[in-house]
């Protein structure tokens, strides 16, 4: 199952902050077009693991391969690979000084070197895809949290990434806005893009994931198909976690 031909492959990954081992020896592979959902208690290292995939965090030990290429510290390689990996953040991180449309065209123009007209055309398509085209001339602060997150997804998609990373995309949203973001993410699953999602939304994990990974204290405790994981968790730790989260 763990093979270097996968879209993302990591071997014995470690990341420590000072004396804290945030990620402590993780080996995982994510196949092309597959959706992996990473769950676990807070502080279990799942966000750090995700951020290692596009080197927002640099691993202390181990290897990461993206689309058959091993990540190094070479900035040119890193910028090239990052352009292929879209990332959606918990706090959206839209560029507040730019309009919705400009948020989406900026990196297309300076990283993908598209003309302004091309970039705008693609931005319009992506905004339409996340159902928010009518807000294209607004500034981020004029949008609700759910709308901002959908713009952030469109911004990532406009780069035509091979991979989409989601770092708790609904955790900062009001409950009534979670659905609109999850619906957009479910559309992406249909489109067959490789996705790695860190979330607390168990409903999404169950519906969308090909594989669920449960992490605790920097290690992968359990890795299974969603049905198997949610109906029959193997480890004691994941049983406890699920009972806490589902009986809420």
């Amino acid at each position: 199952m763990n093979n270097p031909d996968a879209m993302i492959f990591m071997r014995d990954l470690h990341k420590s902050f000072g004396t804290i081992e945030a990620v402590n020896g993780v080996t995982l592979s994510i196949g092309r077009g597959k959706v992996m959902v990473i769950i676990g208690p807070s502080g279990s290292g799942k966000s750090t693991l995700l951020r290692c995939i596009n080197h927002l965090e640099i691993e202390t030990a181990g290897e990461i391969w993206v689309d058959g290429e091993k990540l190094t510290r070479d900035q040119t390689q890193l910028n090239r690979i990052r352009a292929e990996i879209g990332m959606v953040f918990q706090h959206f991180n839209l560029y507040p000084h730019l309009t919705v449309l400009e948020n989406i065209t900026l990196a297309q123009q300076i990283v993908r070197r598209r003309t302004k007209a091309e970039a705008i055309e693609i931005a319009r398509q992506q905004l339409d895809r996340v159902r928010i085209l009518r807000k294209k001339d607004d500034f981020p602060f004029q949008l609700s949290g759910g709308q901002q997150q959908r713009v952030a997804i469109a911004r990532a998609l406009a780069m035509n990434p091979k991979i989409m990373l989601f770092d708790e995309p609904t955790s900062a949203l009001d409950p009534e806005m979670i659905k609109e973001v999850l619906d957009v993410m479910l559309d992406l699953v249909e489109d067959g893009i490789t996705m790695v999602v860190v979330t607390h939304e168990m409903g999404f994990a169950r519906r969308a994931a090909n594989e669920v990974v449960f992490m605790d204290r920097g290690k992968v405790v359990e890795q299974a198909a969603p049905e198997a994981f949610f109906t029959n968790p193997q480890s004691e730790r994941s049983q406890l976690f699920l009972s806490q989260i589902l009986n809420k």
Partner: peptide, 24 residues
Amino acid sequence: GQMEAARSQGMSYVQAMRYVILPQ
């Protein structure tokens, strides 16, 4: 988060500074 968003899109440090951080 602004620098991270820009870098995650493949911008270099200089590009991220020039187009995202410095204007703000």
